[in-house]
Amino acid sequence: MGVLARATAGQIAARLEHAPALPPHRRLRGPEAGLVMVRGRQGGDGGPFNLGEMTVTRCSVRLEEGGLGHAYVAGRDLRQAELAALLDAALQLPALRGALMAAVVEPLAAMQAAAVATLARKAAATKVEFFTMANMRS
């Protein structure tokens, strides 16, 4: 679910081209944009406080053959939320799960992991290496 929440509708749709067709569905609720109040912790690790809201889009679908799918994703992309809800429902079908994981979820997860790793490497390149008396001698 987190992987689909971080992907764009375009990225999900592109991966779905390589996946088995998704079963027909009906919208149960949404897709609709709303807000979630984001909380932080006082002092970083104390009690909760309300930091501010973020936009979130949610969608719930029902497969014609039965089965519910729910999605809540950051942002206001209605199509992303509906695709994520539909995939959530379809991933619960044993017949589809393996193929959808391989065609959609895993490649998206790999893309996201690569982006995270690139950012981490750029951050690492700005890490300060101090020259202290101790390590200058060695």
Binding site: E32, V36, R39, N50, E53, M54, V56, R58, Y72
Partner: peptide
């Protein structure tokens, strides 16, 4: 509409 409240980050 507000859907709810997140876990503390």
């Amino acid at each position: 509409a507000r859907f709810g409240t997140s876990e503390p980050v």
